[in-house]
Each structure stands twice: as C-alpha cells, then as structure tokens.
Nucleic acid binder design. Structure first.
Lengths: 163, 163
DNA sequence: AGAAATTAGATTGCGCGCAACTTGAAATTC
DNA sequence: GAATTTCAAGTTGCGCGCAATCTAATTTCT
C-alpha cells in the first residue's frame, strides 16, 4: 500500500480493495459465461446449421411469426447492421422469407418458411440439454436467470437514460 | 396444447412448458447481459482507446506482468486466433511489448510498457462506475458474480469432459 | 400541399471469437 | 541421437456486434 495511513485518497482506496482484479469483476463472469454457453450450444446448433444469434431469431419467430426486423432487434438488443446480414443468411438457408410490409414500406417483415417451422421440432430437446449441462436444478437456474435479467435491465436503463 | 391428455410424448411435454421461449432461457439472459455490460463500458474504454477484451488483457497484466500468451488465453478462455491480433494491436498502441521467451522459444511473453502501466491509474474508477450502473449493492453483485462463475464452470466442465 | 423531421432498414469498416490449418520449437520415444 | 509427438503461436476465413453513414418511406409541421 502506497499510503498506509487511515486517510487515503479515493484511487488508493479502490486499489487497496482490489476492484481492478479480473476475478472480482462481475462483467467478466458474465462475459465468460456467455462464451461458455456458446460452446455448449455449438454442437447442438451445428446439427441444425445455425449460429446462436440465428437460433435466437428463430426462437422469436416460432413464438410469433411475421415480426418486423425492428421488433426482432428490440427483443434481441441488435441493430440493423447485425440483423440485415444475419436474416439474409437465414433466407439463403431457406428458413425464412423477407418482404417489405405492404402498408408501410419501411418495415421488413420476416416470416418462417415450411423448413423454418419444421426446424422447431429438432430444437425442442435443447433447453433440457442446456439445463443438464448447467448442472443445477431448473428452479435455481430460473432464479439466477431472473437476477441476471434484472442486472441487464439496470445496465440498459443506465445507458438509455443518457439519451 | 396439441395433446390435452395426461400421457404426452416427451417433445410435447417440453413444448407445453414453454422451454423454447426466449424469455425463459438463461442463456439469452447471459448473452444480453454481456452486451449490456459492453455498452456501459464503451464510453469508459473509449476514453482510454481500448476495447473490452483488450481491457481484460490489461487487467491480467496489471495483476502480474510478463505473462505468456498461453496463460492469458487460459484465464480469458480465448485462443491464439483471437489473442494474436489483439495483442498486436495493443503493441501497436504502445501499451505492451511481445517477445519470445529466451528459455522456451514457443512462448510469447507479454510485458507492459510504461504507458501500459500508467493506464492503470485511469482505469481505477471503472469498477465503482460499473457497480453504480448495475444499481445493486456490491455485496449482492458479488453474490451474483459467484453464482454466474459457478454456472460458467459447470458449463465449461461439460464441454471439456467431451475431450 | 410542401418542407422538415423522423423512422426502418441497408451498407461499410473494424474488432472480436472460433474453427481449421500451418509453422517452428521442445519433449518423448525408440 | 534421430524420428515422432506434443505444444505455443500464427494465419485464414467466416459470422457476429456495433458505430457511422446513407437511402427511402412516413409523419409532422406550418
């Protein structure tokens, strides 16, 4: 410690408590957990020829078909720079169709093809496999999920209130 | 529900409980929380000219200088395909030096430059800002962090036991 | 109605993140 | 001690993820 006395400057207080340690940072826990999920999903999604964000788009369309690109982006926190090429790849794979909304030509409507609808059946076992890999009870995982969602929403609110 | 009777097939059971809903999946909570962290960090890291993974590398070097690339990769769960160009950019920015280990020419040792060491002072306030943005007590965040780390390790163990 | 502002999406550029492969050095094996 | 194997790092290719910019359609304002 550079200043052993009781009156330390603010930066020294931070340093002394080790806040800049990798292991103490929740952001790295989340960052590395996201990568860990990706690695678990990889073999499952490879069998369907999907990437993880593509799978997220299909999850939303399986819940409600015919959403707009804007709506997908709001739910997934992704912008057009990410979604436009991603959706084009899903279209090229024959899983979705993209078409401008007749009433409002600005909107891009995304609808599942027959093949895209059928893929859902093959994804049904995935959640159970993920829960198994996570090695915790579904109840515990649901609790943890809610806490992480609350954290995400708090972070998101902080960013958006900066307008 | 396609089959209202008590004896349902396994896929139907999964479907009925809504496991394929985006909102019910912990993986998406983690995925979106990671992006939310990135957005909060962005303005902080921009002021230092760093990206988030570059910041993670510096965190490790500030803890212990002169690590090998392999060691950095093990701590961050990143491989050479990601780290080699990342470290080259940090070197081009004048924050680190890369040099082969004299005793074992396979190892790439990474050491901080004066500028790289100095940058630590400017990063000291970051953890407090993140805690503030997360809108929860440091104790609660530390608890949540530990649970996420446990989840990550369980997922990681599942992947690595497949050899 | 016409001008200005807003909106949804497309495009470009850059930095990850990872799979697959290559290179060169060290350790093992025989 | 020479051949094989293992290991760390580099390279290539592709798909995000996001900032910045552009285009075209709609809405708002006057």
């Amino acid at each position: 410690m550079p200043e052993p006395g009781p009156k330390r400057s603010l930066p020294d207080a931070c340093e002394a408590e080790g806040h800049l340690m990798l292991a103490s940072q929740i952001c790295f826990a989340v960052y590395s957990a996201a990568h860990a999920f990706n690695r678990v999903y990889k073999p499952l999604l490879d069998s369907l020829g999907l990437t993880y964000p593509q799978y997220l788009v299909l999850l939303l369309l399986w819940e409600e078909d015919g959403r707009t690109m804007k709506a997908l982006g709001q739910r997934l926190y992704l912008d057009s720079g990410t979604l436009t090429p991603l959706l084009k790849r899903l279209e090229a794979a024959g899983l979705i169709r993209r078409a401008r909304d007749a009433a409002d030509e600005r909107l891009m409507r995304v609808t599942l093809t027959e093949a895209g609808q059928d893929l859902r059946q093959r994804a049904l076992p995935f959640p159970a496999e993920i829960v198994c890999a996570a090695g915790q009870s579904p109840e515990k995982l649901a609790e943890l999920r809610d806490e992480i969602v609350a954290l995400r929403d708090a972070l998101h609110a902080t960013v958006s209130e900066r307008e």
